[in-house]
Simulated scan of single mutants.
Amino acid sequence: MGDILNPAQDHVAAPIVPLRPLGKVLAVTSGKGGVGKTFVSANLAAALAKRGHRVLVLDADLGLANLDVVLNLYPKVTLHDVFTGKAKLEEAIVRAPGGFSVLLAGSGMVEYSRLTPEVRDDFLRIMSGLIPHYDIVLLDTGAGISDVVLFAVSLASEVLVVATPEPTSLTDAYATIKVLVGQQKRQNIRMVINQTARLGDGRAITTQLQQVLDRFVVTEPGRPIRLIHLGDIPSDPSVRQAVMRRQLLMQSTPGCPAAMAISQLAVKLEDTVINQKV
């Protein structure tokens, strides 16, 4: 882990001013792409909806949105239309398979790949219109630490970082967490380790990450960083089959090991986020 998480490999991000996080909003993010972040967002939403919660997933990856692909949806109205004033917010909200709502970005929104004052204002307007109507809003952010990603994360009361056991994923997860702590003064960050090979691998990885953060990341006195291991999602051939078929795992094979793990994640989020008073 010492070689994997080399503190010398720090990333540099443009500073942003953190806003007061909004309640009942969970940002699902990652240090690098390809770790299953959107897969986790969509299936976690389905698991929470099955438990009776009103859930919305907002595709906050404005430049490379793919939530529509994962859910096999072809929206006529997207977040782009709302941003540009061509449609009202409620017109862009689509019912997804799995019983939750989605607000899809539409791919290739190049003009929204940079954090301009207009993008900030649009995001804030959208979020303030959504939050009163749902028990929880999941922000499926882009990967990495661009200013747009960090701004989207700053709107959330809770952060969930998805990583895999691969060295590159862990290095980028460390860099992302370091920036979130430094810029947004985050204290508690939840971790999900996807594609684990053995039971307990994810908890061990989270513990190692915690040790590296404790050693190399300076925090304010009395405000230590706490990584909360939410759980693992084991490697499971059913996942690839569901993704290739553009189906939710929670619907196609709800009894497989990965789906059962996601159900357990939903229970933990219900107890620690949704049912907590804002």
Rank of each mutant, 00 (worst) to 15 (best):
L5E: 14
Q9R: 10
Q9H: 06
A13L: 12
P15T: 14
I16A: 01
P18E: 08
L19I: 15
L26F: 02
K32T: 14
G33E: 06
V35N: 04
K37C: 10
A47M: 06
A47D: 07
K50H: 07
R51T: 04
R51E: 13
R54Y: 03
L56D: 00
L58E: 01
D61W: 07
D61S: 10
N72D: 13
N72I: 07
H80V: 06
G85Y: 06
K88R: 02
L89Y: 04
A92P: 02
G98D: 07
S101E: 12
S101A: 15
V102N: 01
R114K: 15
R120P: 00
F123T: 01
M127T: 00
M127C: 05
G129N: 08
P132Y: 10
I145G: 08
D147H: 13
A156E: 08
V159R: 11
V159I: 15
L160P: 09
S169N: 05
A175R: 07
K178S: 12
L180K: 06
G182I: 04
R186P: 04
Q187A: 03
I189D: 06
R190C: 13
Q211V: 09
R215M: 07
T219V: 13
E220D: 14
L227D: 12
I228R: 13
L230A: 15
G231K: 06
G231Y: 05
P237D: 08
P237E: 10
L249T: 03
T253G: 00
I262A: 09
S263K: 09
T272Q: 15
